[in-house]
Design a protein around this nucleic acid. Structure first.
Lengths: 219, 219
DNA sequence: GGCAACCTGACAGTGACCTGAACGGCTCCA
DNA sequence: TGGAGCCGTTCAGGTCACTGTCAGGTTGCC
């Protein structure tokens, strides 16, 4: 998933970024309201993590601006313990969730995953796909009763296909899930991951549509 | 997603088309206001990318015309850096967004994706044509309950006919869908593909209008 | 009948895709 | 501190499905 992180605290920002990268997400990290707005790429994100107290303004201004522009990207607010009114205003302004600093990084992972699921219209965390049982919230896959472990990247890619069962995704769309803006991919990374996932989950799990893309194998 | 691209610059047009095709969209590319008007009301586009300075008129005329006709299809304006007033007028005229040339193709992808997201609420676009059931997002076709696989080229051609049920398309128009500008086709490629599609989907699927072109067999 | 348009089976070249292997960066642990 | 192991990425070689072309056959129109 592609995430915009707006956070001016370097330590926290770095920690959050590392955590979410570990989860297989693509993170763009900016530190000011101006950068966030001027990123102009804003609409290309699946999720925004928004600190409120920023050096050049208030995060809520940014949120309101985006909502007025018709942007419905989910937003999770990161707020200090004592900014209760901010939190309420944030939710009123169209934020989807908030987290109180200091927060547990694993909890952040969980909330991000929850927002992603809700956003993808698939709140049910357990899915069955062919011979696989997939627990989205636990990120666990069982095949013939055996737990199969996917790495972060493998999971990120597989998840993309999983959210839209049967829908065809081009390599470009899959790359978008894995990499932040501006990342140039000049090799066959996607192919390699597809190959590795197939090796773990079974060849039939992912279907190749030559010249078009990939999709989850039906049934 | 179905996108109408109105852009008279061949280089830019081709780049934009390739990028969006990579993202899995279906692009119809025209270069004049006249062609845009002719195409816009015949089919349901989900998005229009509109250049303003066109050889036979101004893009805003087209936009105003569509809005007067009650067409609410989202429009993103493509404009040169110095045409500030155009941009403002564009937004006033009912455009949803604009991009300043030269723009980053990834940014375009992102904005288009944002528009696409608004359509995600809709159920999967499924079309029925005669005995065929066509799942547009999966790019999958069922015939008598059997899944039929089309190759990339076959799909591109079939899609062109599909979006204009009953409407006649010339070989030239079909070639335009399949090949970049300047590509010279000196053989009967289109005929061959028509033949291949018929073999897969049934002879009656595509109707020949001798001396004119082809159209989807209406049942 | 003669011509043009169209259909379709066959075929060779190509490039999209697959996958084993290697490499560098990173973390963990002794 | 250094070694082991994992992960992400790149590379290279091989395979094969798709593509474009052609040739010969069929159909429809004048």
């Amino acid at each position: 998933m592609r995430i915009l992180l707006v956070e001016d605290n370097p330590t926290l920002g770095e920690a959050v970024r590392d955590q979410l990268v570990d989860d297989g997400h693509a993170i763009d990290w900016v530190q000011t309201v101006r950068e966030a707005s001027a990123g102009a790429h804003t609409t290309g994100y699946n999720l925004v993590l928004l600190d409120l107290m920023l050096p050049d303004g208030h995060g809520l201004d940014f949120l309101c601006e985006r909502r007025r522009a018709g942007d419905v990207t989910p937003v999770i607010i990161l707020t200090a313990r004592d900014q209760v009114t901010d939190r309420i205003e944030g939710l009123n302004a169209g934020a989807d969730d908030y987290m109180v600093k200091p927060f547990d990084l694993d909890e952040l992972s969980a909330r991000v995953a929850a927002v992603a699921r809700r956003y993808n219209g698939n709140p049910n965390p357990i899915m069955e796909v062919g011979a696989l049982v997939v627990d989205l919230s636990a990120r666990r896959i069982c095949r013939d009763g055996q737990v199969v472990a996917l790495t972060a990247r493998e999971w990120a890619l597989f998840e993309g296909l999983l959210y839209r069962p049967g829908m065809l995704l081009t390599k470009g769309q899959l790359e978008e899930r894995l990499y932040a803006f501006g990342t140039e991919i000049e090799s066959n990374t996607i192919e390699v991951y597809i190959s590795r996932i197939r090796k773990k989950l079974g060849r039939e799990t992912i279907e190749t549509v030559r010249g078009m893309g990939y999709r989850l194998g039906c049934s």
